[in-house]
Design a protein around this nucleic acid. Sequence first.
DNA 1: GCCAACGTTGGC
DNA 2: GCCAACGTTGGC
Length: 153
Amino acid sequence: MRYWLMKSEPDELSIDDLARAPRRRAAWFGVRNYQARNFMRDRMQIGDQVLFYHSSCAEPGIAGLAEVCANAYPDETQFDRTSKYYDAKATRDKPRWVNVEVKFVKKTRLLGLTELRQQTALAGMRLLARGNRLSITPVDPDEWKFITTKLLK
DNA sequence: GCCAACGTTGGC
DNA sequence: GCCAACGTTGGC
């Protein structure tokens, strides 16, 4: 079992949206970065635990917890000409992009980026690395434990 | 809106 | 394979 941080723009999908979604789950479609795709395709498994992060918004930070509930499969939006995620180079025979599905676990207080940066224990966190833009990053078990038991207690 | 940092594309 | 140009991310 692994731990992850997944960024979502709350305008697109917030933790509240996930809590209100049918069966409280959602397909994590729209990822168009190979590294992030590879994490989903090669590393993520059902049961993996997720820090749900709000990005590109007034208060960026961790907003809740989620869990991977479906392994990666081809992202439908790559085939949809009307989608902003459409990819002309992807075909059904050779899909380029995949998505997992996640389900709601809990909403937490908003644990802001500034507060995360203040934690010595999290100095090595991938999310906080200089210039990091990856929308999906692995989280060390120690980091997960610190965040969930110390900061989000 | 700015801009640093990174990723992708495509000519050579 | 190199690398300039361009596009995107995402905090501020």
